[in-house]
């Protein structure tokens, strides 16, 4: 378990998916990749991923099934599996989500149900206390620091007691966990919940930032769908720019999970991301110079 003091510099990366493995291998300037932890087996890493590792590319396992924001204690078997993947990949950190993914069971009078997706946690003190205990348990079980990600939500919980920024700030203060900030998810919550990304960025502790996710989506009938299957749009790059105006992110990663385009298109998106980073890097240098 570690605090937020030591930062790992990751650089620019892309979500590794088997469908685009060849393309990723050919892309120039990929400093690191993220793999969905549940999709790999520690003893049998895909050859293409193994070649990237041999080339010195950092690989970070990104879990999707722990459900740290769920009402139950995290499953020891799932935690053990995540820890094994971190060790097999010699990852500098592992990441998961602030979400619940399953619910129900004998105590609730409903059957056990899997959501098959990340669902938002109510921003209440109750949910915060539960999440903090779950995060501490995960930190104890993992061999490297943990960072947790803000998710995209279509649904609003009634009677919330904290804003997204306040909720994340309390979580970091109480657990020392790091943050993976998804700027596309901040944009999603802007469209779907009317929450201004600037307010969230002002409130959350950016010194705990581990890295940033950027992804594409689309708007339909006034609802933003964080599809990871469409191009990255300007409003999402604008939120990235707002973040970069406040801090230099230790890493930025492009996520694409569906509807894979030619690798040249992904290269173009990485170029747009790098342009935002460089523009704000030079502006900060002037401001602090």
């Amino acid at each position: 378990m570690e605090g937020t003091g030591t930062r790992v510099r990751l650089g620019t990366g892309i979500g590794w998916r088997s469908e685009i493995a060849d393309g990723i291998e050919a892309l120039p300037g990929i400093d690191w990749v993220e793999v969905v932890a549940e999709n790999i087996c520690p003893g049998h890493l895909p050859d293409a991923l193994q070649r990237l590792r041999e080339r010195g590319t950092t690989v970070v396992p990104h879990g999707v099934s722990l459900g740290l924001g769920g009402a139950e204690l995290p499953d020891p078997e799932r935690l053990k599996a995540l820890a094994e993947r971190a060790e097999a990949l010699q990852a500098p950190l592992v990441t998961e989500h602030i979400a619940f993914v399953r619910a129900g069971g004998p105590q609730t009078g409903t059957p056990r149900m899997e959501a098959g997706h990340l669902l938002p946690v109510p921003r209440t003190w109750d949910a915060l206390h539960v999440l903090c205990e779950n995060v501490r348990i995960a930190q104890e079980a993992l061999p490297v620091p943990l960072a947790v990600e803000n998710i995209a939500a279509l649904v609003n919980w009634p009677d919330e007691e904290l804003t997204e920024g306040q909720f994340l700030a309390e979580l970091v203060e109480r657990t020392g966990v790091r943050l993976l900030i998804d700027v596309a998810n901040l944009h999603t919550n802007h469209v779907n919940r009317g929450e201004d990304p600037a307010t969230a960025l002002d409130e959350l502790p950016l010194e705990a930032l581990a890295y940033v996710h950027v992804a594409g989506g689309f708007e339909r009938d006034g609802v933003w769908h964080d599809s990871h299957g469409h191009a990255v749009t300007q409003p999402v790059l604008d939120v990235l720019a707002q973040l970069c105006a406040r801090t230099a992110p230790p890493g930025v990663l492009l996520e694409r999970d569906e509807n894979f385009p030619a690798v040249g298109e992904l290269e173009g998106e990485l170029g747009s991301i790098r342009a935002v980073l460089e523009r704000h890097g030079s502006q900060r240098a002037v401001a602090h110079g």
Partner: peptide
């Protein structure tokens, strides 16, 4: 309380 709320929403 969280368990009931989450099970209610997921159901």
């Amino acid at each position: 309380r969280l368990s009931r709320a989450q099970a209610g929403l997921l159901a």
